[in-house]
């Protein structure tokens, strides 16, 4: 038996992404020299929405690209094979740019660690910042987000599901609590 609770609906997500866009503009004094990099998969549509918000605020669009970190995972040997998706960023979008990495959920920090490694293969950014829709805690690495849509304290037995229209047909965030019995199966 799983218990679900809705954490964010479409409006809440939209407002959070607009606030993040404002914070990015304020922090970086505009969008000049800025590249948004969405982490596959759900970070990609979120990065595109933040870019659209930046365009609406500043009337200037940042570069936007996607990054798949599948080739940089630190647990490849312990999990079944899974394919990698397309990476669209190029060296000229990274070298001497300010990068804002965008992902849906910040949890252990291992995905972000892999993304930092991947970015350094494209060039040397001036700075790298991190934007996430949800920060659920339980970091295993010294990594923190610069822009957070919503902080949600969770237990490790819970799962956070972020769904976006572009992939899932709906915008919502919910938490799923697994029974202890199920967890130990």
């Amino acid at each position: 038996m799983k218990h679900r609770a809705l954490l964010m609906d479409e409006d809440a997500i939209r407002r959070a992404l607009m606030r993040i866009a404002h914070e990015i503009v304020e922090h970086n004094h505009g969008v000049k020299n800025l590249t948004l990099v969405g982490i596959r998969r759900r970070g990609v549509p979120l990065s595109e929405r933040i870019a659209a918000n930046l365009m609406a605020i500043e009337n200037e669009a940042p570069d936007v690209g996607s990054l798949d970190i599948g080739l940089y995972r630190d647990d490849l040997a312990n999990r079944p094979f899974s394919p990698v998706n397309q990476t669209s960023i190029r060296a000229q979008m990274v070298d001497r740019k300010t990068i804002v990495l965008v992902d849906d959920v910040l949890f252990t920090g291992r995905t972000v660690r892999a993304a930092l490694d991947a970015l350094s293969d494209f060039g040397r950014p001036t700075a790298i910042q991190l934007a996430v829709l949800i920060d659920r805690g339980h970091r295993e690495l010294p990594i923190r987000a610069d822009y957070v849509g919503k902080n949600i304290p969770t237990s490790r037995l819970e799962r956070i599901h972020v769904e976006v229209k572009e992939i899932d047909g709906i915008d919502r965030v919910y938490v799923e609590k697994m029974d202890v019995a199920e967890e130990t199966e």
């Binding site: 080739l71 490849l76 394919p83 990698v84 397309q86 990476t87 070298d95 350094s120 293969d121 494209f122």
Partner: peptide, 16 residues
């Protein structure tokens, strides 16, 4: 197709 992009990178080496 998703590997082709790696050949265009300045550092053509992933740690996989």
């Amino acid at each position: 197709q998703n590997m082709v992009e790696i050949l265009d990178r300045p550092i053509k080496k992933v740690p996989t």
